[in-house]
């Protein structure tokens, strides 16, 4: 642990980088993911096709491959030169996590029983009322735990950026452990702890919510 405390500024910088990459790409992935989910349930055929094609391709591609593609293939293929480091990490994580956000939202909407909407319509609620008063509140509750899990994975996935020129927590662990071979276990434990500070509250919350979410089906 000593090496970590001696290099507290470096660790803090890595923590900041992990947090910043996760947050920036997390917000963007949410926006893009919601858009994709809207495409997937929209009445417009081409949008549905586009969104399901995109989701199936990107979700089945390893994140590391996405990075390698942006580094090595995109410039020659599309003339797309994304600066290495933060911008590339944010772009890759956004493209990747959005597919999981999309699927979480879509399965949430699907989990609300048709009977709920039918009941709402039959007591005379309008389309807007049905959606905002009956369907979406229930969808939201059943989406929340899977969504939190998506974001836990997202935060951990941000560590792939360490291999592509972002000095995040994993990169810091790596660098420090080469300089302090005697203290390796402490360094890794400390860095692991930094991740846990972010992820454990989330996963405990998800578990709590899961047991409280009882959607009428």
């Amino acid at each position: 642990m000593g090496a970590l405390i001696d290099n507290a500024d470096l660790v803090l910088q890595g923590f900041g980088a992990t947090l910043w990459v996760s947050l920036a790409s997390g917000v963007l992935a949410f926006v893009w993911g919601v858009t994709l989910a809207a495409f997937r349930v929209s009445p417009v055929g081409p949008l549905r096709t586009f969104a399901s094609g995109y989701v199936n391709v990107v979700r089945n591609t390893p994140l590391t491959l996405l990075f390698v593609f942006l580094v090595a293939a995109a410039p020659s293929l599309l003339g797309l030169k994304v600066p290495l480091g933060m911008p590339m990490a944010i772009l890759a994580l956004t493209l990747y996590t959005a597919t999981f956000v999309c699927e979480a939202i879509r399965s949430g909407i699907n989990s609300v029983g048709v009977g709920q909407a039918e009941a709402a319509r039959s007591v005379g609620l309008t389309f807007i009322q049905t959606l905002t008063q009956v369907v979406l509140p229930q969808a939201f509750r059943s989406v929340l735990p899977p969504m939190i899990n998506v974001y836990i994975a997202h935060i951990k996935n941000s560590s792939v950026a360490a291999a592509f020129a972002v000095t995040d927590l994993v990169a810091v662990a790596n660098r420090l452990s080469y300089g302090n071979p005697a203290d390796v276990v402490g360094i890794f434990a400390g860095v692991g702890l930094c991740y846990l500070v972010i992820t454990v509250p989330l996963s405990v919350t998800a578990e709590r919510l899961e047991s409280r979410v009882a959607v009428a089906r």
Binding site: T64, Y96, N157, S159
Partner: peptide, 20 residues
């Protein structure tokens, strides 16, 4: 199962999981 299955798949999402 369905919700849980989705959740798990999502979690795995990591880079695979780092989901890388």
């Amino acid at each position: 199962p369905e919700t849980a299955a989705r959740a798990a798949y999502g979690a795995g999402g990591g880079a695979g999981a780092a989901g890388a």
